[in-house]
Amino acid sequence: MSAVISPNTGVNTALRYLLLVVFALIFVFPILFMVVSSFKPAQQLLRDTASIAAFLPVGDLSFDNYAAAFRRAPVALFIFNSVVITVVTVAGALFICSMAAFSFAFLEFKGKEVVLAVLIATLIVPFETIAIPMLMLVNNLPWIGAGGLQFGWLNTYHVQIVPFLADALTIFLFVQYFRDLPRELIEAARLDGATWFQVYTRVIVPISGPVFATAAILKFLAMYNQYLWPLLVTQSEQYRPVMVGLQYFFQLNIAWGEVMAYLSIITLPVLIFYLVLQRAFISSIASTGIKG
């Protein structure tokens, strides 16, 4: 530590921290409100919104709202569905998109730049505009499952998974990261006798932890928050994810306590997933091994 500290440094640090705390609170308040409210009876919940008590665990606290939420909707089934759909899609998308990006970044083939440009252009197309054509498409697609060959994918898990296994944003993220990796690493591996697939699995994947973590978080959020598509393609609750499940709580009389309880439950997997990956993200920032 330097022995000489400018008198400003302390004040600056304090100001900086103050600013950070304010921002953190702004982002935390809605979550805090949601969690705290989930333990309050409906009347108290509405009464408290007029004061700071809305953010404080005060008054008549209980798990009644949670119990009621589980009675009202098959919460466990919705969470199970969401976890299955999200985990399978994230895992599949990481594999497929990173492989696609590997080709764009390292392999030479005709039309590469054009294909990549078209792919990136699809980023600006809103999902809502292609939702209906996609619905008509999946309604007629064949699928070989337990019941043999069938046509129409509606009311299944795979209708909520397959269309999202490859997406332009994830591919683009990987392409950008891979292009910054030193080419010599790939060349060294090829001279060492690695096939392209081995270059991918043994050299590129292990040093690409940060981009895998980033892509996983983004994809997880996008999938977990899906609402329109599952609403279109699932008619029975058997395959419905958590966001569509929210409908069960918006009937004639909205039970806000139960809504808050349900929201608190379905936020939990997201937080867990993020915390797990955040650690992976930080620990995987690897040295590139190339002397600068």
């Binding site: 010599e184 060349e187 040093i207």
Partner: peptide, 14 residues
């Protein structure tokens, strides 16, 4: 049947 030593060493960092 060739092996190459690169200017940047190109060691696998992991």
């Amino acid at each position: 049947g060739v092996a190459m030593v690169f200017q940047s060493y190109a060691l696998y960092p992991h």
